[in-house]
């Protein structure tokens, strides 16, 4: 039985991570470890991590922590921390379960091996789906909804938004985000790049 009190253990405690097993005893070091986590930003780079594509289309990770312990994850979540403004930096690598504890952060996709960056990019492409509107073919409004017919980087798409507002949000003066009634989001990177005919069609929402 571990003495419940005393100074924070310095060495490698019980591993944080994985699902919480029914505790044999109250594992204080686990809590301490978790609270230490709060103050720590662990960077993941080519030296301490090996990412591999899995058979099922996800990514696995072998992570070597500071103490030299290797932890294997069958699947990790790959999250953006600044999806809108800086999609390629501070990529957060998380455990796949609901709690999604952070394993570490990849500071910049450009600073790691290209092969690894590609693997992570594939996961980001899977996780995020915000089509970019490239052309606006038609917008018509009927019965309180506006029906958009647009060309996106994913191809042709038709969607409907509520006329009553809230569907179109200005991220900046020229960048807008459109949310349709299903909850899909479409982005127009730069409104000023649209032709004047296209602008006219969406004018009502700008």
């Amino acid at each position: 039985m571990r003495p419940p009190m005393g100074p924070p253990p310095g060495g490698p405690g019980g591993h944080g991570g994985r699902r919480r097993p029914p505790m044999e005893d109250f594992d204080e070091s686990k809590f301490l470890e978790q609270s230490k986590d709060l103050l720590e930003l662990r960077y993941i780079d080519d030296k301490n991590a090996v990412f591999k594509r899995t058979e099922g289309g996800f990514v696995s990770l072998d992570y070597t922590d500071k103490e030299g312990n290797v932890q294997h994850y069958d699947r990790v979540g790959v999250y953006r921390t600044f999806p809108m403004s800086n999609p390629d930096i501070f990529i957060s690598i998380r455990e796949p379960d609901e709690k999604a504890r952070e394993i570490g952060v990849v500071k910049d996709l450009k600073e790691i091996a290209k092969e690894t960056a590609d693997i992570l990019r594939e996961q980001l492409d899977l996780r995020y789906f915000v089509p970019q509107v490239e052309r606006i073919i038609d917008v018509k409004s009927e019965y309180g909804y506006a029906y958009f017919d647009v060309v996106t980087d994913f191809g042709n798409c038709r969607f409907a938004i509520h006329m009553s507002g809230g569907g179109v949000v200005h991220l900046t003066d020229t960048r807008i985000m459109i949310t349709d009634i299903d909850g899909n989001r479409f982005e127009i990177k730069d409104v000023s790049k649209l032709s004047s005919a296209e602008l006219k069609k969406i004018d009502l929402f700008l």
Binding site: G56, L126, F129, N184
Partner: peptide
């Protein structure tokens, strides 16, 4: 092993 089979937009989630 976990396999990803198909992907869909919010319309179908």
């Amino acid at each position: 092993k976990q396999y990803c089979l198909a992907r869909f937009s919010m319309k179908h989630v």
